[in-house]
Design a protein around this nucleic acid. Sequence first.
DNA 1: CACTTGCATTTTGTATACAATATGCCAAGC
DNA 2: GCTTGGCATATTGTATACAAAATGCAAGTG
Lengths: 232, 232
Amino acid sequence: MDGSSFPIARSSLPEAAAERLRTLIIEGGLQPGAKLNERELCERLGVSRTPLREAFRMLAADGLLVQLPNRGAQVVALSPDDVRDGFEVMAALEGLAGELAVARVTEGDIAHLRALQAELEAAHAQHDLPAYYRINRAIHDRLNAIAGNAVLGQTYRTLNARLHALRFRSNLNRAKWDQAVAEHRSMIAALAARDGAALRDLLIRHLRAKQQAVLATMNNQDSEILEGGNEE
Amino acid sequence: MDGSSFPIARSSLPEAAAERLRTLIIEGGLQPGAKLNERELCERLGVSRTPLREAFRMLAADGLLVQLPNRGAQVVALSPDDVRDGFEVMAALEGLAGELAVARVTEGDIAHLRALQAELEAAHAQHDLPAYYRINRAIHDRLNAIAGNAVLGQTYRTLNARLHALRFRSNLNRAKWDQAVAEHRSMIAALAARDGAALRDLLIRHLRAKQQAVLATMNNQDSEILEGGNEE
DNA sequence: CACTTGCATTTTGTATACAATATGCCAAGC
DNA sequence: GCTTGGCATATTGTATACAAAATGCAAGTG
């Protein structure tokens, strides 16, 4: 939280295990709701139970898995309510990021974002969904970085990871995709114009649209959510 | 996150240890920046190192302490920037809570809040600062509960605990106190009128005022912050 | 035949021994 | 006199043994 120290982040064993598990959860190697057997995972990850359990704690803190007393850990399975709630908070956080970003943004930042926007539009034109998602995420991360609020960044990343664990394939039809790209263009314009209120509103609407898309996907295609691939 | 299960929350040993440490940190038994020696704490809490370490992880997740690899844990010491950032996020979260609460509030809720407001004004009239803080917190908690967003509630509580760990004694002079009480009255009016935008703005301004007060206290009275008692 | 009860097995929780790492001190060299 | 290297001590990190709890199955009972 305090940016004044720079420890050489040597990855400890629990940290490494947590990172591996995080990837497994987000990329689907571990299904939502899956029960995590400690001894079995110990063998698979090549660590003993103590560091594995510390990794469990870290992931539980991130909301990626839940720990039931005397009954072990399992991958979190988000209910539609959780998703609705999560996106509502995400929207508020992104809105704040927009407001703060306006106050600190430099011309260099704007140029950088415009370059990313061009990449985004190229991916859109080529129907390259994975690239689109990757660049989309880069833009939102960049905006959060410009906002320069460490607590916001931390909160945002944690919540984002939790929602990503859904591995939803939001039903991005042509119309919605076109609209999302247009919204991105408007956002950068608002940022360049230093119009915090407008940027905030755009970001909130953008997130709400995504919320609706994801919820619709969840309700209509439960099986695909459970079995489908990652959005990225 | 999912409210569909109701396990008998038997407090596990790590949980109990974490709760005890949390109290020590918030109430000042452990100073910000204090290094936590595992063996020493084991004796003081009457648990062995394994559950204590799990408690450390939980508190680290809440941001109440930081864990440095191979160098143990220490109570978090928030910088002024952290406080500024934390309150900015808190303001955005409370604003969202206000907007959501408007959509779900019942007449019963409003009656309950009006009763709390009466208590708040009584505490204010009697210059009872501890009671004021307690009731103030109850009102904000209530508002979050009415909002009915579990993710928001969780995020809010976590961040709140972290800022409380400061044990700041915000410099609440007469004018600021009067204003805060008046703001509370306006909030309840906005909620009763189902005016989400107004409530949101009020809450954000309210939090920003508190942010300013706390930052002023931090900058002017460092020694008192470090040695002083709790705000509650 | 459904339901309960007790036991065997599995799994998680805790304590502790041992290994790896960091810290502080003292002496030797510049 | 200051810095640097190495050693002793203290502290954290990891593995594992043992204890406690949960789970599943089977036999007994209404």
